[in-house]
Design a protein around this nucleic acid. Structure first.
Lengths: 136, 136
DNA sequence: CCGCATCCCTATAGATACTG
DNA sequence: CAGTATCTATAGGGATGCGG
């Protein structure tokens, strides 16, 4: 991904150049719902990403300012990742994707519950989520 | 893409399985701003998609109910494509991506103008766009 | 011409084994 | 635990062909 190649001046295209692959948004999702994740957390997220792909995506997302790697030497979880502000601001997009998907796929109730608040008050839910994430 | 393989029960993941690649959303984008497109229109959209890739994506998006192929025999543009309702309902996502990208990339004024209305009244802009697209 | 299909070749994605 | 290394599969680019 993203070897500094902008395919065009289109904002959609520019965005996809950074996180428009099968995995990046899932990494962002994990960080949205968990605030911080370790390498292992991502691997256990359910979709089964390969270690080399995960490694490459983390590097790419960090390079593009979407996530931050935090070193915490001496603790159990020595390395973890969190969203930057730029990454946090993808929340509205993720919420819209979530809402769209619920209309067209069968989603288990426990997963639906993750954005339940967005159904009654979308803007409020988004604002609260962003605020929470910025505290991490 | 999408050989009927759902990676998980996550709505984000399910969505990406259908249109989470470098090209699908650009095709959707073209249909959002132009209502209908011919094969040639997509090829000339600016990013330079290859003919075989375009063909594959169109087939995949049609298979997944995102777009429709319309045959119009006897006219100049014999074949064109349009969004289905399912595809039209990606508008909120595209708008959010657009807005996000304008914060983090330098976008030419003429392209920014495409969703100018969304900055003052996002919900209104989205509703109007959807209504327009459904008329096509 | 237009809307693809096909072939060839390269680049990237992805699975698995292994390492500091 | 957090990644590399290696190998294979697939996506993608570019040229060309072909029926309508």
């Amino acid at each position: 991904m993203n070897k500094n190649k902008k395919r065009s001046d289109c904002p959609i295209s520019n965005s996809l150049d950074i996180w428009g692959d099968k995995w990046s948004l899932l990494i962002i999702r994990d960080l949205m719902f968990n605030k911080t994740c370790t390498y292992k957390d991502f691997l256990n997220a359910g979709e089964g990403i390969a270690t080399n792909i995960l490694s490459a995506r983390l590097a790419s997302l960090e390079e593009n300012g979407m996530i931050e790697k935090v070193d915490n030497p001496g603790t159990k979880t020595r390395v973890y990742y969190k969203l930057t502000t730029k990454g946090i601001e993808l929340v509205p997009i993720l919420v819209e994707v979530h809402l769209w998907a619920e209309k067209y796929f069968t989603i288990p109730a426990d997963i639906k519950a993750r954005i339940k608040g967005a159904k009654t008050d979308k803007e409020g839910f988004i604002k609260a989520s962003i605020k929470e994430l910025k505290k991490a």
